[in-house]
């Protein structure tokens, strides 16, 4: 379990607080989405997860390991894998397999085990055929998969992903989302930063950050019941939700906590039946 206890953080002593008293609990194997407008502190928050940043005040605990204790850092970093927004910033190997081997090499594992972990991780993300490829010759989607495989080679309990589908075409984004689902099904805790509410709606719990604070946290339904607040902080809503809002604004009695097409059709069907009567 990951616990944020009243965490404060600022990048510069004279600057503003990037995190202002964040308290949050992330359960084992939970799939959690972190949403919020640009600059709200999402990336700052997940960088506390594997001790890349240390709280100025408050405490971050990963399975009873405190991040302020430097001796815990190697263990914390093997437990919480971090997939950065830009895979080019993360990939250090010259070939795919060399990059995936980077973490196990750092963990000083025997060569046979490193090879086994590399093969296993590439299999899990479905790219065993890319093993010997030069990383410079990969597409954006393939680089994301390599970055995820590189983290999986540590066999982490949690993975934090910073906008893993940003700048990808729909097919590549779907592939990444399927892998995230599969990892969650295997029991890995997922902390998923996204700007896409439809993606966030696929998770078990959504945490809304704004100006360094947790504004809302709850299930998808609970969050969408507060749609006004999401709009207020500038979160882009799914088109289908926008449609329902406009219908409601024009006086039609429809629900607005709707995020998928089937629910919207059901609402429109009910409306049509009512108007027939």
């Amino acid at each position: 379990m990951i616990i944020f206890d009243d965490v404060h953080y600022r990048y510069e002593p004279e600057g503003v607080d990037a995190l202002r008293g964040v308290s949050l609990q992330i359960n084992d194997g939970e799939h959690l989405a972190l949403i919020g407008p640009n600059g709200c502190g999402k990336t700052t928050l997940i960088r506390h997860l594997n001790a890349l940043l240390l709280p100025a005040a408050g405490k971050v605990t990963i399975d009873d390991l405190h991040t302020e204790n430097k001796k815990h850092h190697p263990e914390i970093r093997s437990r919480v894998g971090m997939v950065f927004q830009n895979p080019d910033s993360q990939i250090v190997g010259m070939t795919v397999e060399e990059d995936v081997a980077f973490c196990p090499e750092n963990m000083r594992l025997p060569t046979a085990e490193i090879k086994q972990r590399v093969a296993e991780s590439l299999d899990r993300v479905g790219i065993p055929e890319l093993a010997g490829r030069n990383v410079e010759n990969l597409s954006g989607g393939e680089k994301r998969l390599v970055a995820i495989a590189g983290v999986l080679a540590m066999r982490p309990r949690y993975i934090a992903l910073d906008e893993p589908t940003a700048f990808l075409d729909p097919a590549a984004a779907k592939r990444i989302l399927n892998i995230i689902d599969q990892l969650h099904a295997e029991g890995v805790g997922i902390i998923h930063i996204t700007h896409n509410i439809t993606e966030a709606a696929l998770t078990q719990r959504i945490v809304v950050l704004n100006e360094g604070r947790v504004n809302l946290a709850g299930s998808v339904k609970e969050i969408f019941a507060q749609i006004g607040m999401l709009k207020q902080i500038g979160m882009p809503l799914p088109q289908i939700t926008e449609l329902m809002l406009k219908m409601q604004a024009s006086g039609l009695p429809v629900r607005t906590d709707i995020i998928d097409l089937e629910d919207a059709l059901e609402q429109i069907r009910l409306l049509a039946e009512k108007s027939k009567d």
Partner: peptide, 20 residues
């Protein structure tokens, strides 16, 4: 960015194991 990512991926100075 790279040094941050290396730190996140558990890189520490000193001896490392080798894939090769």
């Amino acid at each position: 960015e790279l040094s941050l990512a290396m730190e996140a991926r558990n890189y520490q100075r000193g001896p490392r194991a080798s894939f090769t």
